[in-house]
Simulated scan of single mutants.
Amino acid sequence: MVLGIITSIAACPAIIGTTEAIRQGQRQNAREQHRGRKANLLVSCSDPSRKARDINGGTVVLRNNKLYVTTVSPRGRAAKERRDCEDEKDPGRLNERGHLFAGYFFGYPDSKWGRRGDGLVSTISDDPPQLNWIYVDKDTYEVKYGLRVEAEGNLVGPWNCTPIDKRLTLEGWEGFTVVEEEEDVWALYFDKDDDGLEEKVEPNRRIMEVELIRKEMRIGKEEVDMAEQEEELRNGTDEAKNNKRGRKHK
């Protein structure tokens, strides 16, 4: 009896340590669950210029293989209405419409980033649901989206977010900027060299720093159908499938 009590007392620290480790693991899993949930990207811009009001509170959208920021001010909406009228005459004109960013963190194949982060994916269409990688063009520093074959060789991660405000980071810091490509059309860039995109954009282009904040989306039934897309994206079979679809339509 005494031996049993002594054995139990001796085992207590190990039991307590194991229990605490399990609890820490559960808390860690709870904290990390958000990484796999689809989220929109909201834009915060504190630049002192009046132009900042046009995009502060806007959202990130995908179109023409690049990421853009929508405008929110009345002046921006008026500009959009003017462009919409012009679009009727020229359907190919660049405008604010696009697919709303709906992305999440996802392990990039063969990456060795560990806790520094993961790859980043977003839907590019809802019906049928399709995923693409988000990456930064190694030559232009534009933030783009594409298949794995298009993303490879460019800056594909590690993507992460701050623990409290859920602001998006790349390579451990926030270097996101927007460039006004034409009136009230803002393309998203990553200032990798931290020099204001000195050799990447024309000197007369307006550039502003922005913060990208993840806002989780409502979880719907369609989330269950994304597993197959994720596997295709990881293995690179998405390209073959898209090519096959293209041949069928010809």
Rank of each mutant, 00 (worst) to 15 (best):
A21G: 07
R206P: 05
M208V: 07
E32D: 10
L42T: 11
L147G: 11
R205C: 14
R83Q: 09
V61G: 05
L67R: 00
R167Y: 05
V2F: 14
S46E: 13
L233Q: 02
E180S: 07
D126L: 12
D225K: 00
K244E: 15
T123I: 01
G119W: 07
K138R: 15
A30G: 02
G119E: 02
I22V: 13
M208L: 14
D184T: 00
A11G: 07
P13N: 04
R115G: 02
E81Y: 14
G196D: 11
R31E: 14
M217P: 01
E232Y: 02
G98W: 05
D139Q: 06
A151S: 04
E198W: 14
D193T: 01
R93D: 04
L67K: 04
E228W: 00
W133G: 06
L67E: 05
N64V: 01
E209N: 14
L197Y: 02
G107E: 11
K244Q: 09
N242D: 14
V156I: 12
R27N: 11
L62P: 01
R97N: 13
G58E: 06
G25V: 06
V143S: 03
M217R: 11
R245F: 12
E182D: 12
R37C: 13
A240F: 11
F176C: 07
M217H: 04
R83E: 15
K38G: 09
D87A: 15
S49R: 11
L94F: 12
L67F: 00
W113C: 04
P128W: 08
K192M: 10
I9C: 15
L170V: 03
A14I: 13
L197Q: 04
N160F: 04
E232S: 01
G172E: 01
R53K: 08
V149C: 08
D195N: 12
A39S: 15
G196V: 03
R53I: 05
D84G: 00
Y108E: 07
R35M: 15
H249S: 15
S122K: 09
Y189A: 08
N154T: 01
A151K: 00
A240T: 13
N65P: 04
E232A: 05
E32H: 09
N160E: 07
A227W: 03
